[in-house]
Design a protein around this nucleic acid. Structure first.
Lengths: 330, 330
DNA sequence: AATATTCTCGCAATCGTTTGTAATTTTTTT
DNA sequence: AAAAAAATTACAAACGATTGCGAGAATATT
């Protein structure tokens, strides 16, 4: 069956299309009597405005693009969920694409977003994104981009991030207060600025406030690498007394190694991570973590995008604060 | 900056819009020479077809709707991820909305899908969905709907589901083969049909093939309940020698109790669950599970939808088979 | 050389809305 | 009652792309 259109309503009512259109949006030009009739008829015929026609005409797509590395990820999930919620509340639809951490797919997706004339875009860049041309093209087309989580280094972009330094700082503080000195620190891809920031903050704090502590610094690209690296570290004669993981992914790997070696937490070894809290709650004792909420980040990103859309874009880098959540692992 | 349009290209080339349009899609009517020129110019001007205009004209939206209870869910995530992947490969965009298990939001969302003239729809109904009118409206508009996971009872609908009975059956089989006889079986909300199906299949198999085995049947609404219930069961004098969980959520609770009691797996106690595999892999030893893959379900759903779109709709209920994935927990 | 055939390309309608402006009707004013 | 003002509705041009049809130019046929 065909969809009801303004034309169909107009014809069955015996009036013009524009009258119908205006009546439906309570335009003062239309008399109450006709408006009522139109509204009634529209309800009967189940009229649903054709979003494509509306967007084509108004040039306002009410569509927001969202680019994440992967949907199946415990952090992005909560971000997505939160953004979807806000979008729907504000009458926007969401177009979600995954880059799979591949710059080629990323640029394909950005093209798709452009073709769909998204009103705005949330983007999390891949580890290998070096070419920002596609993003710049968005700017040329007046499509505001709010980068989140993994953001480019460039200045003058809208970014919302977890307070990476702060989170690492808090973790380092907790380790220091727990009087741990032999630290195994697991970080992710060293190319990413998030890694650099967390690492810097972590080392700075430890060197300044935890004199005599040693840091065994390891970069692991994924969970499996984290596992082997942790395993190796635990076989050394000078075993660590605490493990710091900068992400859930690394925590998973580290915990597997720890379980294999049957090491008791927290008696023999402390562990702390940066997380949104889901994974840490799976273990017993629960893992102490510095909270970084994808949910909050999503809310913040949305506000930021709305600000861009409705006025002068406040080009700036915003942060979601972190806090320590005590499990029993430290 | 404005987007490049066919008109702009036509004007700078000094030819008509239709020529440009045809040249861009390699229409035989257009000479190679002009085609080349158009292509070149389009590349320079960064032409991106306006999806709205295309869809309005062609009446083919290349947009697929996806309705899930929640994005932040370890099962739907993989489903979404899989569907997104297929969609992109096939030139479709995805519009994802969450129902939050609320029938009102569900119907709002269905309206949104209609307004956006989705080409097809994947839907997982809420636990309280009784009114299928909104879905029937889709059918009237020739929008095929593929229900997945939680599907309506009605006949004559496209459904793709996990083989709930089979999964429980396989788990029961594995338990029997492992010669376990004192079974603690954790099931979810007894109101849900999925619970009933799994329970029936499980009990039937055990009673028939594992003579002398006893089943301690427990219904737990969430992870916390599963934890207390498991804890209690482990304190009884007649301890279970195996735990069966019908879902990841229950597994998480059970494992916490087991960890607290410092019980060795698999030496003192076996455990098996039904899962998509993520949570089981977090433990050491990894948990043996019957796989129910959201990923595979997504692939199946997509194929089903494509079939509906490209010919006679094969109204039918399809199932994703389950298989046993051996961890070291049994 | 005249006609037929094939190549190229442009015209114009269309998809379903929105919206400025003009036209018509009704009401008010004098 | 005639003119002015206000209220109501219709007309028509966009938005950007697609596509059937026809026109003109180039080539082929006799």
């Amino acid at each position: 069956m065909q969809n009801t259109t303004l034309k169909k309503i107009a014809e069955t009512m015996g009036c013009s299309i524009s009258t119908v259109s205006r009546a439906l949006k309570h335009h003062p030009d239309i008399s109450v009597k006709t408006r009522e009739k139109v509204l009634e008829l529209a309800a009967i015929l189940d009229y649903e405005p054709n979003a494509f026609a509306v967007h084509l005409r108004t040039k306002h797509s009410k569509l927001i693009g969202l680019l994440v590395p992967a949907i199946s990820n415990h952090f992005y999930e909560s971000f997505i969920s939160s953004v979807e919620e806000e979008s729907r509340k504000n009458g926007y639809s969401l177009m979600i694409l995954q880059s799979a951490n591949d710059p080629d797919i990323e640029s394909d997706n950005l093209r798709l977003f452009r073709q769909n004339r998204v009103t705005g875009l949330f983007a999390c860049i891949t580890a290998d994104t070096t070419d920002l041309r596609h993003y710049n093209k968005m700017k040329e087309l007046d499509i505001p981009v709010v980068f989140f989580d993994k953001v480019p280094e460039e200045k003058g972009l809208n970014k919302v991030c977890l307070a990476d330094e702060r989170a690492a700082f808090i973790a380092a503080e907790a380790i220091t207060q727990a009087k741990k000195t032999k630290i195994l620190a697991l970080f992710g891809d060293p190319k990413l600025s998030i890694t650099q920031k967390r690492r810097d903050a972590f080392e700075r704090y430890i060197h300044k406030n935890n004199k005599g502590a040693s840091i065994d610094l390891v970069f692991a690209k994924n969970s499996a690498e984290a596992e082997t690296d942790t395993y190796k570290a635990l076989e050394k004669t000078k075993k660590p007394d605490v493990v710091f993981c900068m992400s859930d992914e690394l925590l998973l790997g580290a915990m597997k190694a720890i379980r294999q070696k049957q090491i008791n937490i927290p008696r023999e070894l402390g562990i702390i991570t940066i997380s949104n809290g889901f994974i840490p709650s799976l273990y017993y004792p629960e893992i102490t973590y510095v909270e970084t909420s994808g949910y909050k980040l999503g809310k913040l990103a949305f506000t930021q995008l709305m600000a861009c859309l409705s006025g002068q874009p406040p080009l700036q880098e915003l942060f979601v604060e972190s806090s320590l959540v005590e499990g029993g692992s430290l």
